[in-house]
C-alpha cells in the first residue's frame, strides 16, 4: 500500500507501483534491516533495484542482514541545501561498508549503505559527536520512525565495537 509520510518536515512518498521501495521501508518500519538477495547467484544488493546487477535475474528474496560496518567515506555538510536540514548543520552523510559481503563479488565492492550520523535514538547527531566520526569508524544501524509503514535507517557509533585509534577526517575542522 502506498506510503505518505513526513520526515524532518520533508514529504516522502512511495506509490503502489514502487514495490521494491515499499518492501524495503516496510521492513525498516519494523526496525528490521533487509536487503534483496538474488535467487540465482545469492548476492545481496543495495539500494533496492529491479534486477540483480551481477546476473540480471529479476527475482529476489528480502533477507535479514546484519547492519554493522565501517565508514567508507562521508561528507560533513555545513551549508544545507534543503530547508529541513538548515537547523541541523553540521550533519554527516555516511557511506558505510557493511561487513556482510564486503569485498564481494570483487575486492573493491561492498554493500555501501547511506545514512546520517545519529544518536542511538535516531536523531541527527550534535556537533561534538560529528567531530568524532571519520573514515574507518565502526557503525551500527538505528532507525528513525517516520510514520506508519516507514522508518529511515541511519548510523550511530557502535559503542560495543573496537574503534580505530584515529579515524581519517578531513584535515580542516
Amino acid at each position: 500500500m502506498a506510503i505518505q509520510a513526513t520526515y524532518l518536515d520533508m514529504p516522502l512518498a512511495i506509490d503502489d507501483l514502487d514495490v521494491e521501495n515499499l518492501a524495503y521501508f516496510k521492513h525498516c518500519a519494523a526496525h528490521d534491516f533487509r536487503l534483496q538477495r538474488c535467487t540465482k547467484c545469492n548476492l545481496l544488493r543495495y539500494p533496492p533495484t529491479t534486477a540483480c546487477p551481477w546476473c540480471m535475474n529479476p527475482k529476489s528474496d528480502w533477507v535479514p542482514v546484519e547492519a554493522k560496518g565501517a565508514v567508507h567515506s562521508y561528507t560533513e555538510v555545513h551549508h544545507a541545501i534543503q530547508p529541513a536540514f538548515k537547523a541541523h548543520t553540521p550533519y554527516l552523510v555516511l557511506l558505510v561498508d557493511l561487513d556482510t559481503q564486503k569485498g564481494k563479488p570483487t575486492k573493491d565492492e561492498a554493500l555501501r549503505v547511506m545514512g546520517n550520523l545519529t544518536t542511538p535514538d535516531g536523531k541527527l547527531a550534535p556537533a561534538d559527536m560529528v567531530r568524532k566520526v571519520g573514515i574507518g569508524t565502526r557503525m551500527r544501524m538505528v532507525f528513525a520512525d517516520a510514520g506508519p509503514g516507514i522508518a529511515i535507517p541511519h548510523w550511530t557509533i557502535d559503542e560495543a565495537a573496537q574503534q580505530p585509534a584515529k579515524p581519517w577526517r578531513y584535515p580542516q575542522e
Partner: peptide, 25 residues
C-alpha cells in the same frame, strides 16, 4: 522525495557537491 531519492535526499544528500563529496574525500 520519491523513488531512488529516498536513499539520498532523505539524508540531506541532494546537491551535486553533496553527492560528489564522498568521492573527493
Amino acid at each position: 522525495i520519491m523513488g531512488d531519492a529516498l536513499h539520498g535526499r532523505t539524508y540531506g544528500w541532494q546537491s551535486a557537491g553533496q553527492m560528489f563529496a564522498p568521492t573527493f574525500m
